Simulated scan of single mutants.
Amino acid sequence: MKNITVIADSRDSQIKAFIKTDSNGLYKILARKNYKIPKSYIQWRELAALISMNAPVFNHHSLDLAQRFTAHRIALWVVQDAPIYCLDSQLLQQFQQTDVGDENLIFRDLISQIPLHSMMLLLPSKTVMSPEGGYVDFLNIHCSDIRHPEWSEGEKYGISPHFLKHEQDICFHFGCIDTKATLWFSGWGVNEDDGIIHQQPISYGSAKVGTKDDSFVRQLRSLTMQCLMFLTFESSGNDDVTFKETINSTGFHPLKEPKEKCLYPRWLRDQEKTPTRHIRENTSHASPTPHWRRGHWRRVAVGRGRVHRRWNWIKPTFVTGSLE
């Protein structure tokens, strides 16, 4: 699940050194995509460099499994021209205050309806911190199915990742390289006949994994799971990031969109504002300390005769002691 790549003293140092040499040429190709990303997220220059450093090395036997799996999934994102999503900070906070619940039931339904199989998820900068103090600002997410090898193979830009067979019917993986250059990778498998999640308590990397690491990986897994659930069951449409959302508000940048061709990621955010819940104070007991009332996911009956089931997100609310 974790491996430390010792090339420089930080991820930023690795990126700067790589861009200077640009040894594989993929970076120049990706840079021309010219993604415009909001300033509070990792910028395309850095992300393109990280992708270029990892995607071509998925088949290098000198790497441990965590590195090879991460590189392979990143390579799939590249060759499949998969989308980039920016997770809104408010939605991230809501996910962090939500209990996933019965994971087995969730994925039994999710695997048959998931709308995409590869994505790059960008997290707001300096919001998700690892036990070692590095920040996770992106997650590469991939879903593979033994009946659909085309989901997990392709060829483009001189790289051709092949389908990696696995024991379970369907596997979900997520991976990233945090700001301290620590690689995090994990995943789980699901068999359609029982819908039970299978995950071995092992490390795919060469580094020793401790209790805090396990807990952190579970946090990332919950976040990954809820993003996929939101896309599948809750999202009514995801707007593209606009040019205005990618510039600073200082007035030093042009307000008109540049003429050169550029791409924009999609937003992963709640279209409806979540109202804050208030507790009345006209009671005999003391007002509670402000706190989050945690959210959860609930399976509800829908459709004609209410014979079908779908997952509904009961959002968390912030409870205060003020008057309504």
Rank of each mutant, 00 (worst) to 15 (best):
N3H: 08
N3S: 13
I7N: 08
A8C: 11
S10G: 06
S13T: 07
Q14W: 01
A17D: 07
A17M: 07
F18M: 01
K36S: 03
K36G: 05
K36E: 12
I37D: 02
P38S: 03
P38I: 00
Q43M: 03
L47E: 00
I51F: 00
N54D: 05
A55V: 02
V57H: 08
N59V: 03
N59K: 04
H61Y: 15
L65Y: 09
L65R: 14
T70N: 12
R73F: 09
R73Q: 12
W77H: 04
A82F: 01
Y85L: 04
C86K: 03
Q90W: 05
L91S: 01
Q96E: 08
D99N: 12
D99E: 09
E103H: 09
E103G: 15
E103D: 13
E103L: 15
S112A: 15
S112P: 02
S118W: 02
S118F: 04
M119D: 06
L123Y: 03
K126C: 11
S130W: 00
E132V: 03
G134P: 06
G134S: 08
N140L: 02
N140A: 02
H142P: 08
H142F: 05
I146F: 03
R147Q: 13
R147S: 10
R147K: 14
E150N: 12
S152F: 10
S152K: 07
E153C: 15
G154T: 01
Y157H: 08
I159L: 00
Q168H: 14
F172I: 11
F174G: 00
G175F: 00
T182M: 09
W184L: 06
S186V: 03
W188R: 07
D193T: 14
Q200S: 13
Y204D: 04
S206N: 11
K208I: 11
G210Y: 03
V217K: 06
L220A: 00
L220R: 00
T232E: 04
S235P: 07
S235C: 14
S236Y: 05
G237R: 08
K244L: 10
T246Y: 00
N248R: 09
T250C: 10
K259T: 12
C262D: 10
R266Q: 10
R266H: 07
R277L: 15
I279F: 13
R280E: 15
R280C: 15
S287Q: 11
P288S: 04
T289S: 10
P290Q: 02
H291M: 04
R293Q: 07
R293C: 06
H296Q: 12
R298F: 09
V300G: 05
A301N: 11
A301Y: 03
V302C: 05
R310I: 06
W311K: 05
N312I: 12
I314L: 14
K315Y: 05
K315C: 05
F318L: 10
F318I: 08
G321V: 05
L323M: 14
L323Q: 15
